[in-house]
Amino acid sequence: MNDLLAFRWEGKPVIRSIKDRDEHGRWDNTRYTIMSVSCLAIFKSDQVNGD
């Protein structure tokens, strides 16, 4: 994951992480966002099947 977070495409990050804290201030979750510059998609209806 750290390699993906450090990776840049045309100088822009491909993935961003946001760390959340719980109500006691402890680290709770990390949310990862795939940035649009990556051109990655999942569950896209016009996906090519490789035929």
Rank of each mutant, 00 (worst) to 15 (best):
M1T: 09
M1P: 04
M1Y: 04
N2S: 08
N2C: 05
N2F: 03
N2V: 05
N2G: 04
D3N: 08
D3M: 05
L4M: 05
L4W: 03
L4T: 07
L5K: 05
L5S: 05
L5Y: 02
L5T: 07
A6H: 06
A6M: 06
A6W: 02
F7V: 09
F7A: 11
F7Q: 08
R8C: 01
R8M: 03
R8S: 04
R8A: 04
W9A: 11
W9M: 10
W9I: 05
E10F: 05
E10C: 08
G11S: 02
P13N: 00
P13Y: 01
P13H: 02
P13M: 00
P13R: 01
P13W: 00
V14I: 06
V14Y: 01
V14T: 04
V14A: 10
V14S: 07
I15N: 07
I15Q: 05
S17Y: 03
S17W: 04
I18P: 04
I18E: 07
D20P: 07
D20L: 11
D20I: 10
R21H: 08
D22R: 03
D22F: 00
E23C: 03
H24A: 12
H24Y: 11
H24N: 14
G25S: 01
R26H: 11
R26K: 14
R26C: 11
W27R: 11
W27A: 11
D28P: 00
D28K: 06
D28T: 05
N29L: 10
T30K: 00
T30S: 01
T30Y: 01
R31T: 09
Y32P: 01
Y32W: 00
Y32M: 01
Y32Q: 01
T33V: 14
T33S: 12
T33D: 13
I34S: 10
I34P: 03
I34F: 07
M35Y: 09
M35R: 15
M35P: 08
M35L: 15
S36I: 04
S36P: 15
S36Y: 08
V37M: 15
V37D: 13
V37W: 11
S38D: 10
S38E: 10
S38K: 06
C39K: 14
L40T: 04
L40H: 04
L40W: 03
A41N: 14
A41E: 13
A41D: 15
A41C: 14
F43W: 10
F43L: 12
F43P: 12
F43E: 13
F43S: 15
K44Y: 12
S45T: 15
S45R: 15
D46L: 12
Q47F: 14
Q47E: 12
V48Q: 14
V48I: 13
V48W: 12
N49C: 10
N49W: 06
G50N: 09
G50Q: 08
G50S: 08
D51V: 11
D51P: 09
